[in-house]
Design a protein around this nucleic acid. Structure first.
Lengths: 241, 241
DNA sequence: CGTCATTTTGAGGTATTTCAACGAAGGTGG
DNA sequence: CCACCTTCGTTGAAATACCTCAAAATGACG
């Protein structure tokens, strides 16, 4: 497969990582009405999956669109070099199942135990054609994901590991300010996952994390939580770009 | 602005870089019917802009959605460090005008003389609600752009300048194989633009380009065209990831 | 033909990668 | 319940590659 997009322009629904609410930021009215949500859920099958379960593999024929109910899922690609790149993490309410030419483009795997909803993609396509408003919500959500992907590009463009890691934590921050959670940021994924997401070696992530702690910018509380100690320093690192 | 997306979930149309046709790859039936295209064009205003003209700035209030008719546009962001990052290039038939919370997120500027169509975003929103099929085309296109953004993330994740540059050229290749154009790839943008897109310094791009030429993988024909000389070597560089 | 912007080239500094090894943690089986 | 094993995380040291600074060369434009 080349780098250039050349997806078939058929009726297939191909959405990846579309969140149904306003994201981790300011809570705005949910883009889906209760009725829409109900109808959508009626089309779905629920599955509960243990950690490290592969949901589908890159290249598998497209069948369903998935929605994360609970848990954490990673979407990644194995490169020719043997290296693995995580394209994005999928949190509750994220939609995934991006396909091209009728095949999934990434492999997805649960990180923690997860509750997953699946909807046959034709079913969803039909529903979207019936309900223009519902479809518009999807459109908004995909554009939102597009913005997020662009932001990730900015992160990856940075050269310094410490800055990338800071931006990553910032991305994980529930409300973006730390006001309501005392600067505590949950970090459900493993270090190697972070490394594969940020395009760094695991060692570099480890060193950057230690540096953040040594500089008293954050304090780690176990492997799966960080607390921002120096908000000003943290934000200036994030903004340094 | 934080790194986390927190766009308002209103009726604003916020689409960036949505191509109306099948992209540079295999030519498939255009996603827009002639009638849809005609109607869309009826809503638009045409403008012809000289090179290096700013179309809108980051932070400007959202007013229109734009479509490239001819020429080349770049969409970029100035970072706190004073560095500039090009988020993407916009080719003919690409749509742009991505906004968040009612404001454009990037600055856009013509690179070459361009023909631009502009449609008030409310007008387009209404049209999309009226025509579910038209909206579905938009949805498909945005997801396509999302895939492209993911691919760019892969490129940016690479550590070697020469590999990134190779992937960039590959991205620019009209049909992805070189079969129909003798491996000749037009490169309309300047070196510095490429550098800002790839997250490299201009010097690194220059050196990588020379290296590609020295290794006889490509040959430059002026500053705005490259010819792939060693297809196998080229592809293996691209795939090396 | 001169001026300005872009591109290229050179040399040194710095950051991350890589390779290697150790320590810790989680899961499995006896 | 403990020992073992696999995986993950950390730390150290050397190598590589890009960045930065500086300056020359090329090209565009008036």
């Amino acid at each position: 497969m080349g780098t250039r997009s050349r997806g078939r322009q058929g009726q297939e629904l191909s959405i990846d990582a579309v969140r149904f609410d306003a994201g981790h930021g300011e809570r705005i009215k949910p883009p889906l009405t209760a009725a829409q949500r109900r109808r959508l859920m009626a089309l779905a099958t629920r599955v509960r999956l243990p950690p490290r379960t592969i949901i589908y593999r890159e290249g598998d024929p497209l069948s369903d669109i998935f929605i994360v109910g609970e848990g954490l899922v990673k979407s990644f690609r194995d490169l020719a070099s043997g290296r693995r790149r995580i394209v994005h993490f999928l949190f509750p309410r994220d939609v995934f199942g991006l396909a091209e030419t009728g095949r999934y483009v990434n492999t997805t795997k649960t990180i923690t135990e997860s509750l997953i909803y699946r909807i046959p993609h034709e079913t969803l396509t039909v529903a979207l054609h019936r309900d223009a408003e519902l479809q518009f919500r999807f459109l908004c959500k995909v554009t939102e994901k597009l913005r997020e992907a662009h932001r990730q590009c900015i992160v990856l463009g940075r050269r310094d590991a410490i800055g990338r890691l800071a931006m990553f934590f910032k991305m994980l921050e529930p409300d973006g300010t730390g006001r309501h959670h005392g600067g505590l940021i949950p970090v459900p994924m493993r270090r190697t996952d972070i490394a594969e997401y940020l395009g760094l070696s695991a060692e570099a992530v480890s060193r950057a994390a230690r540096l953040l702690a040594v500089r008293k910018i954050v304090a780690f509380e176990g492997d799966h939580a960080v607390r921002v100690k120096d908000r000003a320093g943290f934000e200036s690192l994030v903004a340094a770009a």
